[in-house]
Nucleic acid binder design. Structure first.
Lengths: 155, 155
DNA sequence: CGAGTTGGTCAAGAGGCCTGACTAAACTGA
DNA sequence: TCAGTTTAGTCAGGCCTCTTGACCAACTCG
């Protein structure tokens, strides 16, 4: 639930301080855009927003649809759709699960692994740039503050 | 562009540190959910995710559809849909713009204002809780770090 | 006035999610 | 063993958000 569009509340620039949630949402959006752009530059220009939900939860050894859906917090029908799209675009492969005739194992393809590598690299670069801009302590502080917030209110 | 789903990149809990973007996305989602819940409790339980995009950009004196769409970064058709929905649910009113026969002014209704007030209140409460949990300096630091990020890479 | 611009709507479609209904395989236990 | 239940995945239909393309009506300006 709760997609993360900017945020309710007054919007305009000055006057009252912008809500913290707004700052979070916009920052997230900004960094996500940087990642998306880097992926596109590296040849992965067909990424859909919903792909992440699958990508982020596929372990190296593969996973079944139902479990993947559970981890991502969506229905298996929704995840099936995403996986089908990723498969058709060459990021994933599905094979029969030898240990269960009903199940299929979802795994990264070569291209899938390549895109993961690029993404991880890009994320590290982005964080590196932040360290340059803000200094290491502030980035570390950001990281730790967000972690604490997630511990308290986390999904 | 760029909806903000968790984030691409490895996903699983431990091992390498989770990407900063992931922390940001999850934190945003967590706080957004808190806001959504508080609105629901206060009687505004029919909020759609897309509503925020409109709400966040409507000034007190009203605004035209095209300008609202431009500010929110969506097409006017998309914004028209959202506004129609909000109007039908009693959050907005549309009246003819006296200065231009083509245009209509979009403004908050009584109920719309009430929901804005509740939202602003809730946001302040949420930030207050964060201050309790993390201490004022860390929240201030978070705010300032995010602001700096937005200055650099902002939308 | 006539040409071009601008505010808004209509129509069609894609993407991403949901619920409900269903098939087939696997487990379970008398 | 074999009926009954659970589990993996698919199919069908629908809602919501957003897009492009086509269009009309009103405004602007030479």
């Amino acid at each position: 639930m709760a997609s993360v569009t900017p945020v309710k509340g007054h919007g305009d620039s000055h006057g009252p301080a912008p809500p913290l949630l707004r700052l979070l949402a916009l920052s997230t959006q900004a960094l996500a855009q940087l990642l998306h752009h880097r992926l596109a530059v590296a040849g992965f220009d067909d990424q859909r927003p919903s792909d992440d939900a699958a990508f982020a939860h596929i372990p190296p050894e593969g996973i079944r649809l139902t479990e993947l859906a559970r981890r991502a917090g969506v229905t298996k029908q929704a995840m099936a759709e995403v996986v089908a799209s990723l498969e058709s675009r060459g990021y994933l492969e599905r094979s029969l699960d030898p240990s269960d005739g009903r199940a299929k194992l979802i795994r990264f393809s070569e291209r899938g692994w390549a895109s993961v590598a690029v993404a991880l690299d890009a994320l590290q670069e982005i964080e590196g740039e932040l360290v340059e801009d803000l200094g290491r302590p502030r980035v570390a502080g950001l990281r730790s503050t967000l972690s604490t917030i997630l511990d308290r209110h986390g999904a």
